[in-house]
């Protein structure tokens, strides 16, 4: 339980501490057993070996494992959306997932577990929201204008779901095509969480239909009011 909740598993720091300790110990044994000038020579040899191995490792393609791919994918995604998306830098494609490399437990990040604006649940095929500080579930949440807010989505059902926030429509100037503005979380399996950061710039009174949150495949929608 602790393992899944902690940001990084405990073994990594523990193991690296042990490894570092072993290296330091062995190093000191060797260095103390050789003479001063031989020690300097030995040090140079060891240092060059370490540097060359590190250099080779950094340039060997197969060394770039999956974590690196995930990070690069995430970076590309961020770069893509941060440019044109006025609402959010989080996931926006509402179609099939492009990549499997995303955080399936977004709510585990410490800063996101606490103090989100609202948590949207799906349970028994129904969507509802809970606000911290308010006891009963609600179907309407208020978001202050121009404010970055975090909304957590937690799926309690077997089926995978994503949360969608509908942000109105925008007519593309040249073509006249009306484009729907919406933003989605990634898919969340049972008991998984996803996070949506939104910043809504215009109040509800400026919109024809207002804003709302939906979970496709589940009943119920949550009205979003921007005063």
């Amino acid at each position: 339980m602790v393992r899944t909740r902690s940001v990084g598993p405990l073994e990594y720091p523990a193991a690296s501490a042990v490894a570092l300790g072993a290296v330091a110990y062995l190093f000191s044994r060797v260095m103390l057993n050789v003479s001063k000038s031989a020690g300097a020579a030995l040090f140079i040899v060891i240092a060059s070996v370490v540097v060359s191995v590190a250099f080779l490792a950094a340039y060997r393609p197969s060394f770039r494992g999956r974590p690196l791919v995930a990070v690069l994918a995430l970076r590309a995604q961020l770069a893509k959306y941060s440019k044109e998306d006025p609402y959010s830098i989080t996931h926006r494609e509402c179609g099939p997932e492009e990549s499997e490399h995303y955080d399936h437990h977004a709510g585990n990040a410490v800063n996101l577990r606490a103090n989100v604006l609202a948590t949207v649940f799906v349970k028994d095929g129904k969507a509802y929201a809970e606000l911290i500080g308010i006891k009963k579930p609600v179907n309407s949440i208020t978001i202050a204008r121009s404010n970055d807010v975090n909304i957590l989505f937690r799926n309690l059902d077997e089926k995978e779901h994503r949360m969608v926030i509908h942000l109105g429509e925008k007519a593309v100037a040249e073509t006249g095509v009306v484009e729907k503005l919406e933003n989605c979380t990634q898919l969340a399996g049972k008991n998984q969480e996803q996070l949506l950061t939104v910043n809504i710039k215009k109040p509800t009174i400026a919109m024809k239909d207002g804003y709302k949150i939906e979970v496709p495949g589940a009943e119920g929608e949550i009205e979003v009011i921007v005063p």
Binding site: A144, R145, S146, N147, N199, K201, K202, P203, I205, A206, P227
Partner: peptide
């Protein structure tokens, strides 16, 4: 037409007192 202020275009915080 309704008047909608646009503090998001003019003020860094994106809001001005209503």
């Amino acid at each position: 037409t309704a008047v909608i202020a646009a503090p998001d275009e003019n003020v860094y915080s994106g809001a001005a007192p209503n």
